[in-house]
Amino acid sequence: MISSNRPLSPHLQVYRPQITSTLSILHRLTGVALALGTLLLTYWLIAAASGPEAFADAQGLIGSILGRLVLFGWTFALFFHLCNGIRHLAWDAGYGFEIETTTRSGWVVVGASVVLTLVCWVAGYVAMAGA
């Protein structure tokens, strides 16, 4: 193989961030974050399978201030990855490649992820008050 020192990928620093490129790397970042978050999901399931005491410990940890912060971030990552994933599936099916469309669908994804995250947390606190 011939190897050279020429850059193979565009130099990210010299580009003005655009909604399309920003969301593209965010999709990856949230994907990795969600993969790390599966540790929490697995822990929660193990705790539930281990009995009331272990489950109470897990709920206490997740319900702590730090736990709630992590869970809030995780909720946003989940909804962003979900919404942007649907955007990706539309592209896979051949739709939405116009520049204006990708910009618009990008902002729709941002708005939808923020709204869904907030709706989830409000609903969660309402359910908790009722429990």
């Binding site: 489950f55 969660g124 359910a127 908790m128 429990a131």
Partner: peptide, 11 residues
């Protein structure tokens, strides 16, 4: 979300 704050038995 529907089970927020629910006890162990419920979950």
């Amino acid at each position: 979300i529907a089970m927020s704050g629910a006890d162990y038995v419920t979950v």
